[in-house]
Simulated scan of single mutants.
Amino acid sequence: MATHVYDQEVFDRSIDVKILRLRRKLGQHTGSNPQYIRTERGAGYVFDSVVNVDELRTRGH
């Protein structure tokens, strides 16, 4: 049994809000050149970051 019935398409923006909050926590600006999370229009979000393994090894991680 459905609890809500809509005649029109409903857009759920909860993922967008979560991504916005995550970007804020990462200190990432939501400008045109995101540092960690990139928006792919029509598809979703992509984690996009360069990882330097040698640098992590020297830090002891």
Rank of each mutant, 00 (worst) to 15 (best):
R59Q: 08
R41I: 15
E40L: 02
S49G: 11
R23S: 02
R57W: 13
E9M: 10
L56A: 09
Q35G: 09
V51C: 07
H29Q: 09
D54C: 14
R21T: 15
Y45D: 01
F47N: 03
V46I: 06
S32Y: 13
V10W: 07
S49N: 09
G27W: 12
V5G: 15
K25A: 12
Y36Q: 14
D48R: 00
G60Q: 12
Q8S: 10
K25E: 11
Y36T: 15
H29R: 13
I19P: 00
V17P: 01
R38T: 04
G31L: 14
E9N: 05
N52A: 06
I37F: 02
L20I: 05
G31K: 15
I37V: 03
K18C: 10
I19M: 06
Y45V: 01
A43Q: 11
D12K: 05
S32L: 13
Q28C: 06
Y6C: 14
D54Y: 11
L56K: 09
A43K: 12
R24D: 09
I37E: 05
H61F: 13
Y36V: 14
R13E: 08
Q28W: 03
Y45H: 02
T3N: 10
E9W: 07
Y36I: 14
D48I: 00
Q28A: 11
L20H: 12
R24Y: 15
R57S: 06
E9L: 06
G44I: 00
L22V: 08
D12T: 11
G27V: 07
A2N: 04
Y6F: 06
